[in-house]
Design a protein around this nucleic acid. Structure first.
Lengths: 186, 186
DNA sequence: TTATATTTGGACTGATCGGTCTTGAAAGGG
DNA sequence: CCCTTTCAAGACCGATCAGTCCAAATATAA
């Protein structure tokens, strides 16, 4: 059943919510119509489960990248390197379930809106924490305030995901990341 | 007929492509079904027209903001201030037709993909130009390369549009903008 | 083996999709 | 005043939508 959510997530990820039809989900989850409704209650409920799974995965990954036992600057670089990887070439073209959902549904669907807002807030908090540790280590550029800089980084990486839909080269994305981080960290 | 495209654009902008039904477009354009098909050929063609209109508007606005007769730094600030305005509060919640389209359609629709990629390229070129003029005026921070910094700015503003869907306060967005521009321009 | 749950595939529902086509009213020209 | 042309309103089309339901098959238990 966890595997079914995962497979459904892949479908929503590739096609978006409205463009995903129930038969797509049945094929991906290998569930019958009846079983899918018994297990998840419907398309929208299953979507929320898939979105929660996606968010949990993203936050867990950041916890690894920002592991407090490691150098916070290395953590920031790893965090940004992950976005370079996910927003270049065919990875970029695949896009991001969260950004796509934010644009497609967050405005009109309160349940989705809360999850999207919560994710951005959580991500911002984690980046802020990493930047605070960077500052404590004396590695933050002069006059940079961790919370504000964190918001800049969050906007930047989400923008990378948008521009990534045009499948830029890895070199191009990496150069932008280097230019940004080089201005905030020393 | 131009007004009809404009009204259709508003509908696509608010709801996205798949969630916009033909009756929505008929109501907005005050056209009959037959007339809409005679004039535009169908939903998809009308959408492309609306998207082109949106892109033309955005590029025209940048030509004003980056008017070569004015200070390029003022231009950059005006450009970013426009994004702050469009991504705060209820303006933010409304979102951006181009970003929504990039996420919803750019991957699977070649005609849309070309337009989205072309827009980002054109925007990047305009920002690069403004940053080059900033550099010529000696106002660019040391070691900043206009083309790379332009890509950073483009990603940042598109990310603002994404995060803007959660309707942040104007103060928050403005602080992020100030923090970013302060690192690239002096 | 038989009786009882459980789950299956898929028929079926009413609604809605994008797109076509007919009908009738309005407008314009002679 | 009549005839032609134009265009709007909406009936209609097949396809597909999300969701319900049931009969047959399978698994479990006694």
């Amino acid at each position: 059943m966890d595997a079914a959510v995962e497979r459904a997530m892949d479908v929503f990820w590739s096609r978006g919510y409205h463009a995903t039809a129930l038969p797509d989900l049945l094929r991906a989850t290998r569930l019958s119509r009846g079983s899918l409704y018994a297990a998840f209650g419907g398309k929208h409920s299953l979507f929320l489960r898939a979105l929660d799974r996606y968010i949990a995965g993203a936050l867990a990954r950041m916890d690894v990248e920002f592991d407090p036992r490691n150098d916070p600057v290395d953590g920031l670089r790893a965090y940004l390197a992950g976005y370079v990887d996910r927003t270049s070439g065919s990875n970029g073209r695949r896009g991001c379930l969260l950004v796509a959902t934010a644009m497609e549904l967050a405005g009109g669907d309160a349940e989705v809106g809360r999850r999207v807002a919560g994710f951005f807030k959580a991500m911002e908090a984690k980046v802020t924490n990493a930047l605070s540790r960077t500052k404590a280590a004396g590695r933050l550029a002069d006059g940079v305030e961790p919370a504000t800089a964190a918001r800049v980084l969050v906007c930047f990486v989400e923008g990378l995901r948008v521009v990534g839909k045009t499948a830029p080269t890895r070199t191009t994305s990496q150069a932008a990341v280097d230019a940004l981080i080089g201005r905030f960290v020393r």
